[in-house]
């Protein structure tokens, strides 16, 4: 226990924010930045792919399904290697490990989030699309104004769950030496040499605290959404 406190005292700041502000930001802060940017960037893409999955146009639906299946079939690590190779080819210059990891995380996350979006749309009663179309709204209007606002609201718990899995997945950035939390802890362990138990207890505990609290938050949000979605129906039934 004393050793853990000593390590936290000597290396706590390094694990929390890396070399910042003297150098690049790292550690836990970078882990959270990676996860957040991964979620924000993959969200619009996943809505497109998720809607594409159930598009009435079979070519679009098949293309979207193929994207989701192939990405889900590959380990994240393989996607990181591909991004390392393909991104420089596309933009014509070498890119940092950080960019590589963000690209890979976004592609990976888009496939999983798209399935969340698709499931949320399919969970809505079919009558909604039919009602909206018969009122004269176009397919795009129906999606944008009727279906997606409800589906995405209902999907908030699943989206938060995806965020938790993103936080955990950022640890894979370690493989290409991006200085997030896992890599930072590995570095600290390499410097100390004799305290692997303490270092990895700190590392595991940090992830645990973050993911466990997020999980609790998801449960809370889930209950809230459930009651708020039930309320209008109950009011209707009462009236």
């Amino acid at each position: 226990m004393q050793d853990i406190i000593a390590i936290l005292r000597d290396y706590g700041l390094l694990l929390a924010i890396g070399q910042f502000p003297e150098g690049p930001i790292g550690g836990l802060a970078l882990t959270l930045i990676l996860a957040l940017s991964g979620l924000l960037l993959s969200f619009p893409l996943s809505v497109l792919i998720g809607v594409g999955r159930i598009s009435p146009n079979p070519a679009v639906a098949r293309l979207a399904a193929a994207f989701v299946s192939v990405v889900r079939a590959l380990p994240l690590l393989m996607l990181i290697f591909w991004a390392y190779f393909i991104v420089p080819l596309i933009i014509g210059q070498t890119v940092s490990g950080l960019t590589t990891v963000i690209v890979a995380l976004v592609v990976y996350e888009t496939a999983y989030l798209a399935e969340v979006v698709r499931a949320a749309i399919l969970a809505l009663p079919k009558g909604q699309v039919e009602a909206s179309r018969s009122l004269g709204l176009s397919y795009v209007q129906t999606m944008k104004d009727i279906i997606l606002p409800q589906a995405l609201f209902n999907a908030i718990p699943s989206i938060l769950n995806q965020f938790i899995s993103l936080v955990k997945n950022t640890s894979v950035a370690y493989i290409i030496s991006v200085d997030e939390l896992t890599y930072a802890a590995y570095q600290v362990n390499a410097q100390l040499l004799t305290k692997p138990v303490e270092v990895y207890v700190i590392l595991a505990a940090t992830y645990f605290i973050i993911c466990f609290s997020l999980n609790r938050l998801v449960k809370l949000v889930e209950r809230r959404i459930h009651t708020s979605r039930q309320a209008p129906i109950a009011a209707e039934a009462a009236a």
Binding site: K168, S171, Y174, P196, Y200, A204, Y207, F208, C211
Partner: peptide
């Protein structure tokens, strides 16, 4: 469920 798989591998291998 709340710790990355990679970290669990490290815990076993290093700690």
């Amino acid at each position: 469920r709340n710790i990355p798989m990679l970290v669990q591998i490290f815990v076993w291998y290093f700690a």
